[in-house]
Structure formats: C-alpha cells, structure tokens
C-alpha cells in the first residue's frame, strides 16, 4: 500500500507541474514565424494544397526518412524477437494449429470481397495525400488493416514474408533514390521540383510529392503488415519450455 501512496504522490506532483503550465498558457492569436513561412510559401514553393503534407514530405523530408527507418527497425526487432523458437517449431509438424475449427464460408467470402475495397481506399488515401487529409502513413495503416482482416478471417493464413520484404525494401530504396535525384537535378535532398509543380489542387501537382507519399504508404503498409503477421504467427505454447 505504501507503494501505491508513493505513486499517488508522484502523480500529484506531476499534476501540479501540469496545472501551472495550463494556468500560464496563453493561446497565440497569430501564427509564429515558422508557421507563417509555411502558410505563405507552401502554395508557391511546393504546390501542395495540404500544408501538413508539404511539411512532412518536403520541408521536413529528412525527418520522415528517419521516421520510416525507425519504424523499419522496430518491425525488424519485433520479427527477430518473436522468430526465435519459430525455427524450431517448423521442424515438427505444427499440429496444434490445425485443430482449430474451419473458417465459415460467410467469413471467408466476406473478407475476400472486402479486402480489395479496403486496399483501394488505402491507395486512394495515400495518392491524394497532397490534396486532402491523409497520406502515406494513414494509407499504409489502412492497407495493413486490409491484411488484418485477412488474418482475422483465416488465422492459419501465412503471408509471404518474401513479398513483404521485397515491397518494403524496394519502396525504401526508391524513396532514397528520389531524394538523391533531387540533389542532382533540383534544389536539394528530397526536393519535390523534379517534376513540374502544376496547378494547386490537381492530382498531378506538387511535383514528386504524390510519388514519394505513395512509396511511404507502401513501405509503412508493408512494415505494419509484417508486425501483425509476426505477432499473429507466434505459436506460444510450443516455445515455452525454455524456463
């Protein structure tokens, strides 16, 4: 009980800190310098209607490359941590997994009808990332939800890890390649003016942003799918003997 009291005291102390922050907070009435620059110059420099997308893909493109890398590393570690022991499981037959009840017809047909639609929505979201809310990360998550539906409808399903790996590394390489092309042909790393900027608000505008965001979408979708697949494929009962 004394532990609980200490935890409560700590929480109250942090809460007092937060309260002083909250009381002293005065909302801005104008945009600050950075935001003012982005609001004024995005349409002219980048040509993307969605300013958040312009910041993520071009102004702060290097950060996004780092973010995708962090996500890749965490997906790789999840795979690595959970794969230990799975190699052993493959040698004996995986009998316990096949004793589950067969998937019902309704479920499997329904998931087969719905999955292409979900994938289509995901692609729509990341292709239109520079015009409407959404983009590579959201679209990638939607694509991964489509994979999740397949996985839920048929738990025995094995995703092709090779396909996921190829898709992931190919889109990552193309992302970096476009960035390097920007150094050679345009203003700098990940500059979007490789392609003409076009008119604001059209699908083929904002230079190379739709291409980059689609690549990010594929990469993020592949990474999330591989995380889901490795978490769902772990057969826990068999590798628990090593206490």
């Amino acid at each position: 009980m004394i532990k609980r009291a200490i935890a409560l005291l700590l929480t109250l102390a942090v809460g007092a800190l937060f309260a002083s922050l909250l009381v002293g907070y005065v909302p801005d009435s104008e945009l600050n310098h950075t935001a003012r620059y982005y609001a004024e110059r995005t349409a002219e420099d980048i040509g993307a209607a969605n300013i958040v997308t312009a910041i993520i893909v071009t102004y702060r493109g290097l950060d996004t490359l780092g973010e995708v890398t962090v996500l890749f590393i965490s997906a790789a570690i999840v795979g690595l941590v959970l794969a230990q022991g799975r190699v052993l499981n493959n040698a004996p037959n995986n009998a316990p997994r096949q004793t589950r009840a067969p998937v019902s017809e309704l479920l499997s047909t329904g998931s087969r009808v719905l999955t292409p639609l979900i994938l289509l929505l995901g692609v729509y979201v990341f292709v239109n990332g520079h015009l409407t809310p959404g983009g590579g990360f959201q679209g990638g998550a939607i694509v991964a939800s489509g994979m999740l539906l397949l996985l839920l409808a048929d738990p025995l399903k094995q995703f092709s890890h090779r396909l996921i790996a190829v898709l992931e590394s190919l889109s990552g390489l193309l992302f970096v390649g476009i960035g390097v092309l920007g150094v050679l042909l345009a203003g700098g790393f990940l500059d979007n003016r490789l392609l003409p900027i076009g008119t604001l608000g059209e699908l083929f505008s904002a230079g190379v942003i739709p291409v980059i965001y689609s690549l990010i979408g594929l990469k993020v979708g592949a990474e999330f799918s591989s995380m889901l697949a490795s978490l769902s494929e772990t057969n826990h009962t068999e590798n628990s003997e090593e206490t």
Binding site: N50, V52, T53, V125, P133, G134, G135, F137, Q138, A141, I142, A144, S145, L148, L152, F224, M227, L228, L231
Partner: peptide, 18 residues
C-alpha cells in the same frame, strides 16, 4: 483532420488488435 485520420487508423485500429 490529418492527425484525426492517423489516430483513428493506427491508435484505435491497429494498436487494439496488436
């Protein structure tokens, strides 16, 4: 709206299933 979409797809969708 961008953040709202991300949170709905990732925060409440994928995380819960993980």
């Amino acid at each position: 709206p961008d953040v709202a979409m991300t949170e709905a797809a990732i925060g409440s969708g994928l995380t819960t299933f993980l």
